[in-house]
Nucleic acid binder design. Structure first.
Length: 486
RNA sequence: GGCCCCGUCGUCCAGCGGCCUAGGACGCCGGCCUUUCAAGCCGGUAACGCGGGUUCGAAUCCCGUCGGGGCUGCCA
């Protein structure tokens, strides 16, 4: 039997990292078993669903490097893979269920339900639906419908009874029907609920394995009941551990922007995000943390997923991103960092500047963990009037023998024959010796003068990239600033 | 409240009865390297929630307890 798995996000917001992790696991499982990965959109909630979220979600999945065999954007034998296009199908299933006596019309109004729920809760009873309409005669229901009353449809959960299933992650699960009320499968508006639509789709699309968040574990019995009421065989379930925020609560908006998009915008690499996500609830190898998609696919199995929730640790993700950035070929680093740099300084680099940046880029590559960091590290190269970082100035420049160092360096660098890293370094070291200064004393003033900060890429390479003329200008300007302070 | 899930370093994982004086990674601390910052290398810090069993032997099995979490909607 071919493995067919799916991810079915609801476009009521951005794809968050929890969805992304589910997508990664499903994708890995499909690829591992030579099966199909399907992307469907669960947009039964017409009020909250928005089209822009659909495209953003697809973009996010593609960004992660996931491809799907059927679904939104790529098509397949099941139409648009959007539930909003299949309401007729869900209505037909619900109709059949009623005809079979497995579901029934419910005329209770939301207000009544709310009152009863509150009363039940106050009395310490289960808040679920009390079954008022379950005993209505079909004829009476038909009559009330004919007279214009609106009604929802509920599944008649077999009572007494229990639903059992084997979960790939949680093992044997059992839910007594006492704790499952007759849930709504079609709203009084005619729209299906998630439970119905999702179950019908999984059956119609031939889904063999459903791997999703543990938050839906307790609804799974409902889905199995529905599947069986339809006369179909339920898929295999695997409920993935939830992702938590640093506070130990289910990851959500209150933890800041946890959307995949936010991480894309923050400058993370898809390879790093994939690697990190795959490690949340799973382990590739006890000794190996960094690995690629292919390696992950070859090793992945849903049965190896751990049961306990995982805290999403941005710090580790960021560290990992740095690892991936450093592994990039130099040319790739240049190409991929350039957009962030240009965005940061607010303009495109010209030919000359690109060459300057390219020369220094390898030194930047080993120093950044996120794309936007290249801006602070190199913007001094592309500004005419750099501003001195106050702390750096205070720490480095307001100390002797700064002025002597600057004067001497200006003199020596001005007379240098070749303007390259080696020549600059040789000359500056000679200066150090003559002035009897240690590198810190002698070089930091030059660094601040040239880059504006006491933290920068290596000094001599930076000076070479800056060019002789601009370097001298900056040293002179720093020297002048010092004099003015006296 | 009810139902369900989970419980190994601060965090993510390894461990599936003896290989564990519990291993790897992030973080943190210290050192080396060094023109700053990174990177790299070396070292360190830190955990089996608790209590009972079972067993020659338990992080690993069982029970209880405590703790955390999820669900409890005509949201998904």
């Amino acid at each position: 039997m071919t493995v067919r798995v799916r991810i079915a996000p609801s476009p009521t917001g951005n794809l968050h990292v929890g969805n992304a992790r589910s997508a990664v696991f499903n994708w890995m499982y499909a690829r591992r078993h030579g099966g199909q990965f399907i992307v469907r959109v669960d947009d039964t909630d017409l009020e909250r669903s928005e089209e822009r979220f659909v495209s953003e979600m697809m973009d996010g999945l593609r960004w992660l490097g996931l491809d799907w065999d059927e679904g939104v954007g790529v098509g397949g034998p099941h139409g648009t893979y959007r539930q909003s296009d299949r309401f007729d199908r869900y209505a037909a299933v619900a109709g059949q269920l009623i005809a079979d006596g497995k579901a029934y019309w419910c005329f209770c109004t939301p207000v009544q339900l709310d009152e009863r729920r509150q009363a039940a809760q106050a009395a310490g009873l289960p808040p679920g639906y009390d079954g008022t309409c379950r005993t209505l005669e079909p004829a009476e229901a038909t009559q009330r419908m004919a007279s214009g009353e609106t009604a929802s449809i509920r599944l008649a959960v077999p009572r007494p009874g229990a639903t059992e299933f084997h979960d790939l992650v949680r093992d044997e699960m059992r839910f007594d029907h006492d704790v499952i009320d007759d849930f709504v499968i079609v709203r009084s508006s005619g729209a299906p609920t998630y439970h119905l639509a999702s179950t019908v789709d999984d059956v119609d699309y031939g889904i063999t394995h459903v791997a999703r968040g543990e938050d839906i574990l307790s609804s799974t019995a409902k889905h199995i009941l529905l599947t069986e009421a339809m006369g179909a065989h339920p898929p295999v379930y695997a409920h993935l551990p939830l992702l938590f925020g640093p506070d130990g609560k289910k990851l959500s908006k209150r933890h800041g922007d946890t959307s995949l998009k936010a991480f894309i915008d923050a400058g993370y690499l898809p390879e790093a995000m994939f690697n990190y996500l795959s490690l949340l609830g799973w382990s590739y190898d006890p000794e190996v943390t960094i690995f690629g998609r292919d390696e992950a696919v070859a090793a992945f199995d849903l049965e190896d997923v751990s049961k306990n929730p995982a805290v999403f640790d941005t710090e580790k993700l960021t560290w990992m991103n740095g690892e991936y950035i450093r592994e990039l070929p130099a040319a790739a680093f240049f190409e991929r960092s350039l957009p962030a740099l240009e965005a940061g300084i607010g303009r495109a680099l010209d030919e000359q500047e690109r060459a300057t940046y390219a020369a220094l880029a390898p030194l930047i590559q080993e120093r950044v963990k996120l794309w936007p960091e290249v801006v602070g590290m190199t913007s001094w190269l592309f500004e005419d009037d750099i501003t001195y970082d106050p702390m750096s100035w205070q720490k480095v420049m307001e100390k002797e023998p700064t002025s002597t160092v600057l004067d001497d360096a200006i003199d020596r660098l001005g007379r240098l024959e070749r303007w390259d890293t080696d020549a600059i370094e040789a000359e500056m070291r000679a200066m150090l010796e003559e002035l009897e200064l240690n590198p810190r004393k002698g070089f930091q003033p030059l660094r601040v003068a040239a880059t504006g900060s006491s933290v920068s890429p290596p000094l001599f390479e930076s000076l070479e990239a800056l060019g002789r003329e601009r370097s001298l200008q900056r040293l002179e300007r720093a020297r002048a600033t010092l004099s003015n302070e006296d």
